[in-house]
Nucleic acid binder design. Structure first.
Lengths: 256, 256
DNA sequence: CCATCTTTGTGCACGCGTTCACAAAGACAT
DNA sequence: ATGTCTTTGTGAACGCGTGCACAAAGATGG
């Protein structure tokens, strides 16, 4: 019944803050790197640097999982890898379906990062009959008609939507009806899902727009600075975004 | 000098909270949809529903941009589209380069959401000489050797990294040295960039791991409930993730 | 012109997340 | 065994973001 509740499942899960959960994969990746180089222990300072976060934050994050460090020494890499993996549920196997095998869907199917961490692509599904049977990343694409059967047969609880925006909600509804309770959505749409279903979205266009905002801001400040400096610090042809006074309330002429 | 400072440029930009900036693209998308259906005005309530957020939050967000609504009526759709576009810097043209034309890079090149919002793919760059000249999404791939020249000639300030993890930092360094000040990183690595450069990262594997965490939590709760209920509410074969007591401090046997 | 009704804009309180700073804990050398 | 040194784990303060609830503003009808 809840409409468009994107990530952040509101309730703090088992005492572990959502923000911490979001960082655990980051730590895990850094730790895996250390593990491969056979580093036995790390300090919070070192690991924090490798993961790109504050060391105090990292220690507090780990404190939610338990006391897994040794004072004066640091954390045992292998042990921590195991603990975080277990906490994230990566010690079990998660079958995943990808719906919508266009460019993006194919890229996802080929993405190595899945298999390496407990995720297994159980099926690729597309609405185009011409795609059916065609192998992508070594897996034959199946037609949408089979969606429900595939989900149930494989016990799939995580679905990835990589369809065009128009089809996303419909696909989402079918996935949920068939038993999927976690969805990763790449389509640029707000999905409505019932309570108890988690949705996370990845929107390339939105990320770029956020960057553009900051980029514009930088260009504006720089233009201001250059106004009484003379030498522009950055390359040749960059537009200056001149209009718009320093304060927000421009008398902008742009009627209805 | 700053290491791995991912998004959140710390300083609140021009008084607009970062959280608000991140939602503006969402509003813009919803508004664009309304605009195409020639809807003249929307209330905060309606628009909030379409964007999947709280209406109070939406109103507060808009209040940072100025007073663009009319009490008793709502917001003028076209006017708001313009204001948000301007605020995000989408009224100007942003040339973008994509580095690393594998599956993902190709998918990005083909992604329609870019062109529609002021972004223009200025060049596709790959390190593989065999790719050079090969057209992807109608644009010929260029070799990495040309990177600096391309950036400077086109005044590119936004770069997208879709290379393997191993190459990402090196590519990043070259982009920054050539004048790029905003980077969208798809490689699963923490990038180090100097101050003044913004990095946003998109990590498919991390999103899935976060979902897995919540999925595991749900399975655990459900198992607990089913323990004295008898009828599992969800489909047939789902693993139960039984071990692990209700409290965090498991005496787990997994030594160093 | 006045009353009513709708919807915005925002003051305020609350909760989450971050960061600082330090005491407690353990390793290690002597 | 004792002291020193390193590093963890956490109490406490702070700041940001969210959501409630309401007053102000304007439209609309009589």
């Amino acid at each position: 019944m809840a409409t468009g509740r994107s990530h952040r499942p509101a309730t703090r899960s088992r005492g572990i803050p959502e923000a911490t959960v979001a960082r655990l994969p980051l730590y895990l990746r850094a730790l895996t790197g250390l593990s491969e180089r056979s580093v036995p222990t790390v300090s919070s300072e070192e690991l924090a640097a490798a993961a790109g976060v504050n060391s105090a934050k990292l220690r507090k994050d780990f404190s939610y999982l338990g006391s897994y460090g040794t004072r004066g020494v640091g954390y045992d890499v292998e042990y921590l890898v195991y603990q975080i993996s277990r906490e994230l549920g990566l010690t079990q196997d998660w079958p995943v379906v990808i719906v919508g095998i266009g460019n993006l869907g194919a890229a996802l199917a080929n993405y190595g990062g899945f298999a390496s961490r407990g995720f297994r692509v159980a099926a690729l599904i597309d609405a185009d009959p011409a795609m059916a049977g065609k192998p992508v990343a070594g897996i034959p694409v199946q037609h949408s008609d089979e969606l429900e059967k595939i989900i149930e047969d494989n016990g799939v609880s995580i679905g990835v939507i990589a369809t065009p925006a128009g089809a996303a909600q419909q696909v989402c509804d079918r996935l949920v009806a068939a038993g999927v309770t976690s969805i990763l959505n790449f389509a640029p749409t707000v999905l409505s899902v019932p309570d108890g279903v988690d949705v996370r979205k990845v929107d390339l266009s939105i990320e770029l727009q956020i960057l553009a905002f900051h980029e514009q801001r930088k260009a504006g400040e720089e233009a201001e600075a250059a106004a009484h400096d003379g030498s522009g610090p950055v390359a040749a042809t960059r537009r200056e975004a001149a209009e718009q006074g320093p304060d927000g309330d421009v008398p902008a002429v742009m009627p209805a």
